[in-house]
Design a protein around this nucleic acid. Structure first.
Lengths: 241, 241
DNA sequence: ACCTGAACACCGTTCAAGT
DNA sequence: ACCTGAACACCGTTCAAGT
């Protein structure tokens, strides 16, 4: 057999960042956040823990890279022809579903501020806010609000999934435990939470998530309306902040 | 010397959950999230790691308890006579400042879903939403949105502080690094993020945070206005969702 | 009832040594 | 250039044994 022509030919099963990331995703999906271990990973890749460090700088980098792979996949469809509001909703729901499928992505996102996976989301949101006509000076705080909300829900979802895994391996079971705890709180001190316990049992995370996005979008459009009115009416009276 | 009268008298320096929690807070404030260690804690309390387990069930319980102590302190002032909106703003800002002073509280909150510290915040928000006249069926999703946003910002702040500590011990230095990274992104793929890099350098977290709260409050009032209009006008046309 | 501290079963990371 | 795997410096948690 003549040797292969390609000069950078490698053994099919040799290590590479991509193979390591794929194995990490598989491990995280099957065993949760603390299932990702250099030793477990090495076993899965039929190598030693040290080998992985040739391709990857640290565990947190690896987690961020795995997270980024999921985010990039999720944001891959461009969503043409929709209104900016619809695009933001679609983008947000896409992220929600991705985190629902891979809860560890939620905590990875909140632990990688300003890193590539977060930037991908920021960019998409920002472009839609521009399309929506949000004035330049308000774009940063508006995109920050949307992003914080999305990351907040992500983190909560991840934490719920993590707790459910640790405690009883069932998620609705865990929510039920929390609801029971809430309904046993002191009625004088926690009237709202007690009544909310019932809602907690029947709520739909996805619907609640979208309701929050709509609330923020509503705030954006209200602010835009106020700005229009301000421009049309008398000078600077009643301006914001 | 006659022995003291109190029957449950203990050595002044004996262990108690409270002393352990205070020592934990001191440790977390001075050495960050992973400064809290049973060995370091034991040394500070002049005892062994095993002794702590007599009073505390696990590390995550301890972290939640420390977090709860800060949250309870922060929410202690009742804020009388203010409008519901102003109360929500004050409450949110209080939490923001507390997390700014104790960044580890941010990540502790996001890792304790449905637990006491989160419930305290939920309750206060919920009571103000009732005062605001948000209808019963909308209270849950509204309070969820506010809470997710607050927790999202908390988590981001905690992550920023954590990263800054790990990398260069200076926070604005870290934001500068991120801003530089953003400004070097591909202009075609990341136009928004590149232009946002400038804002990142000069922004004020606290102002941005409040702007997000105002956006959500705006969405709430807009929804209320739409509901009033719907009731006054023709039947169910233009109803939400 | 409360405390001690050694021991267990793990971690991430490094690094001399190999190919 | 890439891989091996033992070793280092940690962890949280348990538990027999003490007072």
């Amino acid at each position: 057999m003549a040797k292969k022509a390609r000069s950078t030919q490698r053994r099919e099963d040799s290590l590479s960042p991509d193979r390591i990331i794929e194995a990490s995703i598989a491990l995280l999906d099957s065993s949760g956040e603390n299932g990702l271990t250099f030793r477990a990973l090495a076993e899965r890749l039929a190598t030693g823990p040290g080998a992985i460090y040739w391709h990857v700088a640290s565990k947190s980098d690896l987690l961020t890279a795995a997270c980024d792979a999921i985010v990039a996949r999720t944001l891959s469809e461009p969503v043409v022809g929709a209104t900016p509001e619809a695009s933001i909703r679609a983008l947000a729901l896409g992220m929600f579903d991705a985190i629902d499928a891979h809860p560890w992505v939620g905590s990875a996102l909140t632990r990688a501020p300003g890193q590539l996976p977060v930037v991908r989301i920021l960019e998409r949101l920002g472009q839609q806010l521009r399309a929506l006509g949000v004035p330049d000076e308000e774009q940063w705080e508006t995109v920050s609000a949307l992003l914080s909300y999305i990351l907040g829900v992500s983190g909560q979802n991840a934490a719920n999934a993590h707790f459910a895994r640790e405690r009883d391996a069932d998620r609705s079971n865990f929510l039920d435990e929390v609801a029971t705890m809430w309904s046993q709180l002191d009625p004088d001190e926690y009237p709202f939470t007690r009544s909310a316990a019932a809602q907690l049992r029947v709520h739909d995370d996805r619907v609640d998530f979208l309701a929050g996005i709509d609330l923020i979008l509503g705030g954006i459009s209200q602010r835009a309306a106020a700005a229009r009115k301000g421009r049309a009416g008398v000078a600077g009276t009643k301006s914001r902040r």
